[in-house]
Design a protein around this nucleic acid. Structure first.
Lengths: 152, 152
DNA sequence: TATTTATAGTTACAAATGAAACCTGTTTCA
DNA sequence: TGAAACAGGTTTCATTTGTAACTATAAATA
């Protein structure tokens, strides 16, 4: 597969670059939606969202589901906890393992932010046809599956 | 089991999240390809690639083409320069403006790294049909155009 | 049981990043 | 002209992030 003449590498046509360019803009715009109005970081928002969806999970579980590393999770949990947005205890069966839950305030905040980000997503999707949305979803699945299962 | 009546925000279905997840993995794998073997950062690699393609451009031009901010460009240029991979002069017409070029060593390094990253891209694309590759390209264009023209 | 190995989470330190201040040189325009 | 505004690039400083070391539990094994 190394049959390329390598000056075929043109950054603006290069798939990883194009993906990264798009993603960075979207992530930044999305973060703007809540960092400006609410005192919460993107990492904290992820944890807030995953705990709304899956209560009672551990920090490790949350990291698994959000693809965040454990240090980032630990810091986000600490931040949310200090703002009284989540409640942490340790499991009685396994005292190493945390059990995380949103507080009432945390749930309230989630419900304030969620419409903002879903509106943003909807605006994005609205420029695609139903068929294109489906294509995009399948392409992302296919690529994600590839890069997560392939080993170097 | 999935009690999510309040709204539709489910992280694992959320387009910006899925995009970001995929992109982060790809960026990381890609960086591994050259950071382990060569003493060069991702920012430096971007500048190396863009200068191979467009010699004699300024730092501002390079930033424009790579979507890097000027501080990141400045540091990458400094790093490459210290490794004798690029040569910087200032324009005679406008002494503020830099004129950047790869050195012989810089060009050599580019030609070592380029096949690695294009092979990676090809392996990614190989799991898609020609038609899917075309779809992906069009979808990225459409989304990118939308998020860059819409004012935030 | 005692010893080692592994897991969950935190902390410490170093490197990367971003925002703003800071040159220096160029343009604008009264 | 000459002050003000602007543009290209660099530096500074505070924040974020990632890697590795560390604490404490739990599981494996011998």
């Amino acid at each position: 597969m190394t049959d390329n003449k390598d000056n075929a590498l043109v950054l603006e046509n290069f798939l990883p670059y194009r993906l990264s360019y798009l993603t960075n803009i979207i992530s930044h715009q999305l973060a703007q939606l809540y960092t400006t109005q609410f005192d919460i970081t993107p990492h904290e928002w992820k944890i807030l969202a995953i705990l709304n969806r899956y209560p009672n999970i551990s920090a490790a579980d949350a990291g698994e589901r959000t693809a965040m590393d454990k240090v980032a999770v630990s810091r986000a949990v600490k931040g949310l906890s200090e703002k009284s947005l989540l409640h942490k205890i340790f499991s009685r069966e396994d005292k190493r393992r945390s059990v995380l839950n949103l507080t009432g305030q945390g749930t309230d905040l989630f419900h304030k932010i969620a419409p903002l980000v879903t509106d943003y997503e909807n605006a994005l999707l609205a420029i695609l046809t139903k068929q294109e949305q489906e294509q995009l979803s399948q392409l992302l699945d296919k690529l994600t599956h590839h890069v997560t299962t392939e080993k170097s």
